[in-house]
Design a protein around this nucleic acid. Sequence first.
DNA 1: CGACGCACCTGGGTGC
DNA 2: TGCACCCAGGTGCGTC
Length: 296
Amino acid sequence: MPELPEVETVRRGLEPAMVGARFSRVTLRRPNLRFPFPERFAERLEGRTVTALARRAKYLTAHLDSGESLIMHLGMSGRFDVALPDGSNVSPGDFYLEGALGNARHDHVVMALNSGATITYNDARRFGFMDLVPTDALAACRHFAAMGIEPLGDELTGATIARLFRHRITPLKAALLDQRLIAGLGNIYVCEALHRARLHPQAPAGTLAGPDGSPTRGANALAKAIKTVLTEAVAAGGSTLRDYAHPDGGAGAFQHSFRVYDRAGLVCTAKGCRGHVSRIVQSGRSTFFCEVCQRP
DNA sequence: CGACGCACCTGGGTGC
DNA sequence: TGCACCCAGGTGCGTC
């Protein structure tokens, strides 16, 4: 699913259609996604105006004039389609091929706005979900209460990584995927960040902290690599998998900048490195890295 | 508390 | 052509 850069791309694409608009009619095509929709979901949206559309990690939050916020998570395959009154269509951060993944039978939520635009949520695998919580209690809600720091915020430094990872024996890959520590990274950008920082994905996370808890060079390099790769990916409009080009510019282009992800067997692109990209499985998920330039 | 495996779903690709 | 099997961007829960 969309990781932080893809969710941010979706946010920017939805913002002009959603903010300032009022929900005139909300239709649920099924009672649940990954979780049941909250009580009276449609009724609590209808008649409400969106005052802001924000992002926290991989979550979108639409703030409403009712004092509640609509929380949206795209899971692995969630996507939005915006049909504008003039008949044009936009799929902000449309990271999937046309066809089955975009099949209308997976249109689960249809939100008609008073502007005449219609926003449709489509999610083939239904790992996504939506929720409604009081805006002033967002940070304490069950989705956000235990969530880690924003990787693009000022909090992410080598010192912070050293503090968060100290004493942990879990592999770096797993620590970076743990949303309770740093929130927003997923499989792609963890692989890319570790490669840029030249760190081995199987190295124990705790090795990024010195005996006194101070950040190692690797911790500082990792903080920098995370920020760089995420910033570049956001600027590229995220990544689009399954090599297709979307004519209306709805798709991102960062997949062309992958250095290791989904490049098993290909030559490492690091300067002066003659290695090849390896694929291993960590906690059931693919890890791509270069054994030559990424050292424990 | 930390670490790990599995569960939740559908669809695409591959190889026999 | 059919079918079995593996893979996929995430997260939550039960179990040691």
